[in-house]
Design a protein around this nucleic acid. Sequence first.
DNA 1: TAGAGTGTGTAGTATATAGTATACAGTCCA
DNA 2: TGGACTGTATACTATATACTACACACTCTA
Lengths: 117, 117
Amino acid sequence: MSAFGDFLREAREALRKQEPRYSLRQVAARIGVQPSYLSKVERGDVGPPSESTVIRLAADLGEDPDVMLALAGKVSSDLQEVIRKRPRLFADVILQLKDMPDRAVLRLVREVRDGDW
Amino acid sequence: MSAFGDFLREAREALRKQEPRYSLRQVAARIGVQPSYLSKVERGDVGPPSESTVIRLAADLGEDPDVMLALAGKVSSDLQEVIRKRPRLFADVILQLKDMPDRAVLRLVREVRDGDW
DNA sequence: TAGAGTGTGTAGTATATAGTATACAGTCCA
DNA sequence: TGGACTGTATACTATATACTACACACTCTA
């Protein structure tokens, strides 16, 4: 049971139904890893790849890199920069998010997106 | 110039003014690392320590572990679990936070904290 | 029915991470 | 003025990370 691997395999298989260029081997070739490795990643046999590999993967599959990085349990390096600049603030946000029920987070996201900040 | 190291040294030196038990060597001994290593961390000679070491450090100095982890550019493993459960949602929040000015984030944090979610 | 393409199993590896071990020079103060 | 303490420099290291290389069995189709 691997969140990242499952997501990856489903996304790739969905694309593969339309275009054969989304076979495991061809994707692996395009993003520059061995097919055996990508296979292991998809089956959760090994952990999620490095940040740069996740990003190349997201680009090839047309997925949102931030979502894929989140699934991989990583924090993108540009986000790390944001955090580093205001760690206290970020820690506060995190603290709130931890205890918040899903609907609250959803509401928060919507408010943030739609509000005039 | 190391955000984590500077914060650490300042926090420790401040405590040291009151109690000599906050010398570099004694802190190192209590949290279970070599003094030479802690010295390098404080001066930014090496990167921030591992998550568990950061947490022991925060506990010994009476600092907020989430703040220190944020300064270390890390995401605590329990937060990673939260993210893993709803990566899309989190990616959305992150996306917003990236572009938000400081005052907006502050306001957001306050609203979240004080609001009845 | 051979050849191209498919996914996967096994074994090994380069690099980064997160430190250790020991030695050294300076300070404090009894 | 010598012992206990301070921080730091140098050299080395165990473990984890993020893969590679290659071989194998299967399927599809021309």
